[in-house]
Amino acid sequence: MTTAQATAPPGKALRAKVSPPTIFLTFLQIGAISFGGGVVAYLRDGLVRKKQWFDDVEFLEMTSISNTLPGLNATNMAILAGDRLAGWPGAAAALTGMCLPAFVFMTAAGMVYAQAHSRPLANAALRGVAAAATGLIAATWFKIGKTSLHGFYDAFFVMAAILGINYFKWGVPITLLAVGAVAIFTYRPHTVPEEPAQEQAEWISSLH
């Protein structure tokens, strides 16, 4: 962060004036247009490039926090960014704005589905959607894995989690706790090689 302070990013100056209603409207817009997943890319475009509320260093720090915590990237990022902009009212405004369009969309989808799910044509279309969604989600994780996985241990822990869920049927909580604990212990302090900064730069540039 020392480099970020030294170069005095433009965001710091603009940020002082941001009010919760502005934050709400900004996140409402991102929450309404971010079709097709990859909300983080939309957030970076809106918050770093257009609004200049954050520089890439701070944005990257927020993504790494939100990846480590439970909760979705979209909502975790909204909370972290909102808090940094205007404290807890900012976090609440950002979370509400981010979620509202999706809430309306999905509740409406539920109303339609309740009427239509016994109709064969709706089911036929949804079978196609489900099959395509499988390919989309696989592609999303393939891309994440390609940029973030390095070395034998990473591959081992990916396999261990997959086997825990699908072969040994440990269930999600046990798999998460067991494999997570072993993984964190494996990467315990003083054994962690220095994180190459280039890897993070590559990841940011992979967001379109």
């Binding site: 990846n67 696989a138 822990f157 990916v158 989690a161 699908n166 494999v179 997570g180 990467y187 994180e195």
Partner: peptide
């Protein structure tokens, strides 16, 4: 850093496991 480094691959494994289901 250990938590971040360790949970990264586990999160990917859990997601792939979920995707298989």
């Amino acid at each position: 850093d250990s938590i971040q480094k360790g949970l990264g691959p586990v999160a990917i494994g859990l997601a792939v496991g979920g995707l298989i289901t």
